[in-house]
Amino acid sequence: MNTLIIYDNEGYILSIRQGEPAPREPIGVPFLWVDIPEGKRIKVIDGIGVDTSVTPHEVILEDIPPSEVDVLEIQVADLQYQLMMNGVL
């Protein structure tokens, strides 16, 4: 889904908008339209989420860390595999 990111000249994010109908583009304020891939999120440190040191400016993305449930599911699968390999299951 297209996301409108409105930010200042230092990359400080002022607003993140998405949805239908598409939000109105601001006038006189820098903005980016970005499509955030699945499994990624905007990395914001002290409000800064846009890299303004490059041209064109780019949103800073990071991987979404696995949830506690995801981590537990992986651990259960690993334990089941180990038990199976040891002939217990």
Rank of each mutant, 00 (worst) to 15 (best):
1 M>Q: 06
2 N>L: 12
2 N>F: 09
3 T>Y: 00
4 L>K: 00
4 L>S: 01
4 L>T: 00
4 L>R: 00
5 I>F: 02
5 I>Q: 01
6 I>R: 04
8 D>F: 08
9 N>S: 09
9 N>Q: 08
9 N>V: 14
10 E>V: 11
11 G>S: 04
12 Y>C: 13
12 Y>E: 14
13 I>H: 06
13 I>V: 15
13 I>R: 03
14 L>N: 12
17 R>C: 09
17 R>T: 07
18 Q>K: 06
19 G>V: 01
19 G>I: 01
20 E>F: 08
22 A>W: 03
23 P>N: 00
25 E>A: 08
27 I>A: 11
27 I>F: 07
28 G>V: 08
28 G>I: 06
29 V>K: 09
29 V>M: 14
30 P>H: 05
31 F>Q: 02
32 L>F: 01
32 L>E: 02
33 W>E: 06
33 W>M: 09
34 V>G: 00
34 V>K: 00
34 V>H: 00
34 V>D: 03
35 D>S: 12
35 D>V: 11
35 D>M: 07
35 D>Y: 00
36 I>T: 04
36 I>A: 02
37 P>I: 04
37 P>K: 03
37 P>A: 05
37 P>W: 01
39 G>C: 08
39 G>Q: 05
39 G>T: 10
40 K>L: 10
40 K>G: 03
41 R>E: 15
42 I>F: 04
43 K>N: 14
43 K>S: 13
44 V>S: 10
44 V>Q: 09
45 I>L: 13
50 V>L: 04
51 D>T: 01
52 T>E: 06
52 T>N: 07
53 S>G: 03
55 T>W: 05
55 T>F: 10
55 T>R: 10
56 P>K: 02
57 H>V: 01
58 E>L: 07
59 V>L: 04
59 V>E: 03
59 V>N: 01
59 V>K: 00
61 L>S: 02
61 L>R: 01
62 E>Y: 06
62 E>H: 04
62 E>G: 04
63 D>C: 06
63 D>M: 05
64 I>H: 10
65 P>D: 07
65 P>K: 11
66 P>T: 12
66 P>R: 04
66 P>L: 08
68 E>I: 12
69 V>T: 15
69 V>E: 15
69 V>Q: 11
71 V>Y: 04
71 V>C: 03
72 L>W: 06
73 E>V: 11
73 E>H: 10
73 E>M: 09
74 I>E: 11
74 I>R: 15
75 Q>H: 09
77 A>N: 12
79 L>A: 12
79 L>G: 08
79 L>N: 10
81 Y>T: 14
83 L>V: 08
85 M>Y: 11
85 M>K: 15
85 M>L: 13
86 N>E: 15
86 N>Y: 12
87 G>S: 12
